[in-house]
C-alpha cells in the first residue's frame, strides 16, 4: 500500500450522511410545527424525521469509525 494516509471513502460517505441527516431531520421537525400547505401522502408518518435520523446515525457511525485520526 503506497498511500498510507489516504482517507477512506467511507469517511466521506459518513460526513455527507451526517450533513444530510441534520438537514432532513431539521426540515422534518420544522414541518412538524409548521405543517406545509400541500402535505405529502402519509405525511403523518413524519418520514423526514426518522429517515433523517437514520441518515444521521449511520453517518455518525461511519464518520467516527473511518475518521482519519482513528485510521492512523
Amino acid at each position: 500500500m503506497h498511500r498510507p494516509n489516504l482517507i477512506s471513502i467511507w469517511f466521506f460517505v459518513g460526513v455527507l450522511l451526517v450533513a444530510y441527516g441534520l438537514l432532513i431531520t431539521g426540515a422534518g421537525l420544522y414541518g412538524l410545527f409548521s405543517p406545509p400547505a400541500r402535505p405529502v401522502v402519509l405525511g403523518e408518518l413524519h418520514a423526514g424525521i426518522w429517515w433523517g435520523g437514520l441518515l444521521l446515525a449511520l453517518g455518525t457511525v461511519y464518520t467516527v469509525k473511518f475518521s482519519p485520526r482513528r485510521q492512523k
Binding site: 444530510y20 438537514l23 432532513i24 431539521g26 426540515a27 422534518g28 420544522y30 414541518g31 406545509p36 402535505p39 405529502v40 401522502v41 402519509l42 405525511g43 418520514a47 423526514g48 429517515w51 433523517g52
Partner: peptide, 12 residues
Amino acid sequence: LARYCGPGLLGL
C-alpha cells in the same frame, strides 16, 4: 417521489 417526500427528502 413527489407523493411521499417533503422538503429535504425531495432533495435527497
